[in-house]
Design a protein around this nucleic acid. Structure first.
Lengths: 134, 134
DNA sequence: ACGAAGCGCTACATTTGTTGTAGCATGGGG
DNA sequence: CCCCATGCTACAACAAATGTAGCGCTTCGT
């Protein structure tokens, strides 16, 4: 990767938390990995919609997300499927539809979504406007 | 554009939350807004580093994040500053340094980071086994 | 005092990602 | 048979991120 040494040098002068014997930037590996997934443009929104709706068809996701372009949505869903967050299911029923839903792994992102929602309500919605008619 | 009507039709059959007369995808505004911020490539990592280190100089952030390119980091920090998540402080002390730190708003993202971390530990680090498609 | 070096960036060309619009294959309905 | 909806894919155009270079400033070594 790079040299996190300088960072750590600095850290010891600052108020860095005591980190494990790993001692390198690995300490943030967990968030880093998750951030790579979550820090993609539509990931969080997709997960959120899937969480609320339970399961979605492609076109429903598209419109629920405000008209994402199908290429992007397709790519993102494919990636999320690879990562085990979303499951794709082909219903061979009468109208042969495709349905996307969250896996266990994906469902467990609810904590993140919830935290994000409450943060948003406190800091984003609260002072600005009245988007939530609750 | 397309027609979000189908989405709502679908929604009412599924477990969608009761949404106002707005009738479109606005119902997820809170997460949507937050996702726009958090769903940027380096935002979460920056917040995480700032949260751990307390305060950081530019170059420290750069190395801690694994060598992000300075243009991107600069742009992201500027944006985060505008949004009120990060505060920039110019220290006029002996070596005139610049320090970045989280504002209250930014600090309150800790819940998100924590959830993300524990999710990551459970599903990314710990069990790289199989994603059980529920 | 002069040059080198570190810091906090900015500039610019290249690469990557996202968007808009079109279109294809499949199946259903008129 | 034609036309439409669904679930995508294709492709050009635009935007964002990257790599590399460099600037202005200041401090340090000599």
């Amino acid at each position: 990767m790079n040299s996190p040494v300088e960072a750590l040098d600095y850290v010891e002068d600052c108020s860095a938390p005591a980190m494990g014997p790993l001692g390198d930037s690995r300490y943030l590996c967990s968030v880093e990995e998750a951030a790579r997934i979550v820090g993609q443009k539509w990931t969080l929104q997709i997960v959120n919609v899937l969480m609320d709706f339970g399961e979605c068809r492609f076109c429903v996701l598209q419109s629920a997300l405000g008209g994402v372009n199908p290429s992007t949505l397709s790519a993102r869903l494919k990636k999320l499927e690879e990562e085990g967050i979303v499951a794709r299911e082909q219903l061979s029923s009468m109208p042969p539809h495709v349905v996307y839903r969250l896996t266990d792994m994906g469902s467990h992102l609810s904590g993140v979504i919830n935290e994000l929602t409450s943060w948003s309500r406190t800091w984003l919605c609260a002072g600005i406007a009245e988007p939530t008619a609750s």
